[in-house]
Design a protein around this nucleic acid. Sequence first.
DNA 1: TAGATTGTTAATCGATTAACAATC
DNA 2: TAGATTGTTAATCGATTAACAATC
Lengths: 262, 262
Amino acid sequence: MSAARAPRTSVPALGTDAVSTRSIPPATVARLPVYHRVLTQLSDAGVALVSSEDLASACGVSSAKLRKDLSHLGSYGTRGVGYDVRFLAYQISRELGLTQPWGVVIVGAGNLGQALVSYRGFASRGFAVVGLLDSNPDVIGRELPNAATPITVGTMADLEPLVRSGQAQIGVIATPAEAAQDVCDRLVAAGLRSILNFAPAVITVPEGVEMRKVDLAVELQILAFHEQRRAEEQEVSPKAAAGPIPGAQTPVAEKLGEAINA
Amino acid sequence: MSAARAPRTSVPALGTDAVSTRSIPPATVARLPVYHRVLTQLSDAGVALVSSEDLASACGVSSAKLRKDLSHLGSYGTRGVGYDVRFLAYQISRELGLTQPWGVVIVGAGNLGQALVSYRGFASRGFAVVGLLDSNPDVIGRELPNAATPITVGTMADLEPLVRSGQAQIGVIATPAEAAQDVCDRLVAAGLRSILNFAPAVITVPEGVEMRKVDLAVELQILAFHEQRRAEEQEVSPKAAAGPIPGAQTPVAEKLGEAINA
DNA sequence: TAGATTGTTAATCGATTAACAATC
DNA sequence: TAGATTGTTAATCGATTAACAATC
């Protein structure tokens, strides 16, 4: 194993070896969390060493892509041997900034906001929900039982203290689309620079603010597109009876919500 | 306007013009739902005509990208004039398969599954939750009040009938990671070919199945990465006092306070 | 030494961007 | 006709892939 050293091409590489200066491609950054999760699972399962081939297949990517991705972090494997599972997991967690805890403020205590608070994946990866805010008097002050840590719905006035005190670094927008831009502006004004937006709205942020977006409606519409394509291909050439629904079309079975309205 | 024609390089391009044969780049498909949503809003606001420049800025993309994207659908604009808002919205909805309703089965009636059922963005875009299934006896049979359409939690045995009867075309996995692969296998076995996975797990699907993934933990970790980078840069050169809290800060103005729930 | 596997290189592919000819 | 704006082209950029030299 051995820690990283880096002969690279000439250039002695001044100073910081541990902190890293290189910029990592966005596509690679987006995959690191998956590598990290799988490595953690392997470690928990008692696996000490893994090859790029095995790790890649467990992560659902090609080994070439995995090695290329890891090469951006440094040289943490051993040729002819593979990767030390725990060592590599640590290096990735260090790169991702998971070695320190991060505080998350969620704005919007509706169904989604409440579900997020009780999401166990937060705490297990070093994220803590330090605030759940809303502007609706009906929910402000309500206690949420399901949460990992009991939490009370606060008001937007609680936002700034949370940021100023250093408790919150990441903001999550879980409001209806209409309120999203306004909420985002407040998050930024309060000092947050990393935002995750669940609202189905186009939101603009100032330079320097990193915004990620999760849009359920968009995901479903992409699936609808593929589903329609499948149907079309079926029409054109029903040759390869990829029989999705051999018999298909039966009266109904109204047990659960029939609907399909709009 | 006029429908698409395509001189391309030689090849006369046989048959189907209206249904479309061309394959649309994935990156474009992923943006079409946003274009569609914004066009719908413009239409509702009474806007009848829009230029690629204006539409693009409302969608948060460059006009070049927008025009390139739209060019994959056909030639639906008018040079020197712009795009007819409703006509373009219709063409996109047709391309995405939004002109017909789609049935969604959600597996996992935990916090997330319940939040999804009550998500209003479903119905408003032609998606109907036709089933909410779980294997936990404690929740099976429970009625969910928040839903657009009242719905009762069913069992996994309800899956196949929903698919066979043609009520469900899209499956959503909202279970813990441990159950995800098994649930996915069942969705596929039941005949579904379009799946949205919220479970933080690497899942493999057979050829021909389209799977989209939404991973909250991954999104947060990507943000953590950027947050850490910011902190590092701050250390190295605190020159440009990127003062996290410039001017901003107004009391509040809870005008659109109300809702923010769901 | 022989076998295994990494880290890197070079080729390919797809997406983005800028510019402009076509055309309303 | 003059001005505006699309649809397309060509250049650039970034990501993926395959192959292999380095090396354990």
